[in-house]
Structures are given as C-alpha cells and as structure tokens.
Simulated assay, not measured.
Amino acid sequence: MPQVRQVPLPPLHTLSLARWGQLCQAFNIHDQTAIEQEFNRIATAYGQPQRAYHTAQHINECLAWLDWTKAEISAEFAGHLVLEMALWYHDVVYQTQGSDPEERSNERQSADQAVSFLQAHLPSHPGKHGQIHRVEALIMATVHLADQGAEHCPDSGVKQTVEYPLDLAPWMMDIDLAILGADPQRFNQYETQIRQEYAWVPEAIYRTKRQQVLKQFLARPVIYHTPKFQQQFESQARRNLGDLG
C-alpha cells in the first residue's frame, strides 16, 4: 500500500510573488505593475477572514502537487502552465453564503477574474483565445459535483454548464481533491477548516449536507481521474471519507 506522500511546502499562508511573476512571464505578460497589482489582489482574496481552508495554504498545496505531476502532464505550453494559472485563480472568489447578485457560482466568478486579467494583459497572438478559454474551463472543472454546485457543502443551488478541456481537466480536479487523500492529521484539519467556513450553518443541517457530499464521492467507482492520483490517494481518501461516516 503506497504511503501518503509528504510534499515540502512554502510558508503555508504566504503566496509567492516570485512564482506568480515567473508564471506571468511564461505567458509573455511583462507589465510588472500589472503583475504585482494582480498578485496583491489574489493574495488579499485568499487572506479574507471568512476563509479557513480556501487560503494560501490550499493554493500552495495545489502548486506542490502540480510540481509533482509535471512529468506526466503535456510538455506543450498549454499543459502545466495553463494548469498553474487556473490553480492560482480557482478559489480566488469563495463565499459560502452566495452573495453575488447575479447568482454566479464561486467558480464562475473566479474564472471571470482570470479571464479579465488575461484578456487585458496577454499579448495578442493566434492562440490567445484558446489559452484563456482553457484556463477558464479548468477553473470551472473544480465544481466537481456539478449537480450540487459545490464540492464542500451543497447549499448554493447554483446551476451551471461546465465545459472541460479533456486532456487537462482530470489533473485539475485531482490536484484540487488531493486533500481527500491526505494523511489523517491534515485531513482532520481540512474538515475543521471547512466547518469554520460554514460556521453560520446550524450543526445538524451542516452534518446532513456534508454527509451528502462525501457520500457522493464514496459512491464513485474512483474518486480520482488519473492513474497517478489513484495510486497515491484513492485508498487513503476512501479511508478518510469512510471514517467520517
């Protein structure tokens, strides 16, 4: 049975301006002022006080898992770089009480912010629209349980159409859900963090809704989409989720 991999992480609650800048440079975005302004906007979002799990810690963990998977992901430009851009943005908007007046999901609003930045600063070239669309679609892939509107607590009621880039979406979803297969200590911390983000929900209602979400993951033939993540996390994820039931 494979051991749960421990990934060395940067300081948990600090995002790396250097890494963000390198990613933007790889996209041929060279306006340093725009790069730093967008980084500050992203960092401020992940530092919002209502967050406990969807913070810089989660983004750093996702980036560490991305680095772990690079050898398996397409070497073309539209591979790991597009995934990384999507990971930076995928939870940049996270509200548990549905505050958007247009009833857009968190994922939709996060994707919109990514699209806005890339449209404004990505140089014009024949593949620009395709790159932006792939980043957008990968962010939308993190809906996971599309019929529920969220992967954590299904209370938003927001319906949406999700179009996945078939080559990269499995990696995006698996990286985002790697936490389910974390070691028990980190998984229990995750559960506590999610509860903190839904502190406004009465305990009995929260437990019922949370169990519904977790049971949907357990009911899948496999939780993870890629062989690499299945081998590394599938068994531990099922143990973690089963222990909560």
Rank of each mutant, 00 (worst) to 15 (best):
I179C: 07
H144W: 04
A141T: 10
H133L: 15
P184S: 12
D183Y: 08
P126G: 14
P123D: 04
L118T: 00
V135R: 05
R134N: 10
E136R: 14
R186D: 13
I132M: 07
L168A: 09
A146S: 11
W171E: 14
D155A: 10
R186W: 06
T161G: 07
Q148L: 13
P170S: 09
H133Y: 05
S156G: 09
C153S: 02
G157E: 01
P126T: 14
L118H: 01
H125I: 03
A141E: 08
A141I: 00
E151I: 06
H121Y: 11
I132Y: 01
E151M: 13
H129N: 03
Y164I: 03
A150H: 11
H152Q: 15
P170G: 11
L180C: 08
W171V: 13
D167H: 03
H152D: 12
P126D: 15
Y164D: 14
L168N: 04
L122V: 06
A150N: 15
T161Q: 07
Q148K: 11
M140T: 01
K159N: 01
H152S: 14
A150R: 15
I139R: 03
A137L: 01
P184H: 05
A137V: 00
H133D: 15
H144M: 14
V143T: 12
V162H: 13
Q148Y: 10
S124A: 08
D155T: 09
A182R: 06
T142I: 06
E163I: 14
C153P: 01
M173I: 08
V162S: 11
A169H: 08
P154T: 05
G130R: 11
V135M: 06
I175K: 09
M173D: 04
H121Q: 02
G157W: 07
Q160G: 04
I132S: 02
S156V: 00
L168Q: 07
I179H: 06
E163P: 02
A120R: 14
V158E: 00
G181S: 15
K128E: 00
Q185Y: 10
I139M: 04
L145P: 04
I132K: 02
Q119H: 14
H125V: 03
H129I: 10
V143M: 08
D183Q: 11
L145K: 11
E163L: 12
S156E: 00
L168D: 03
Y164R: 10
G127M: 03
L118P: 00
Q119A: 04
I139H: 04
A120H: 12
L166T: 02
H152E: 13
P123H: 06
G181M: 14
A141H: 00
G127Y: 05
Q148I: 00
V135E: 00
D183S: 11
A146Y: 13
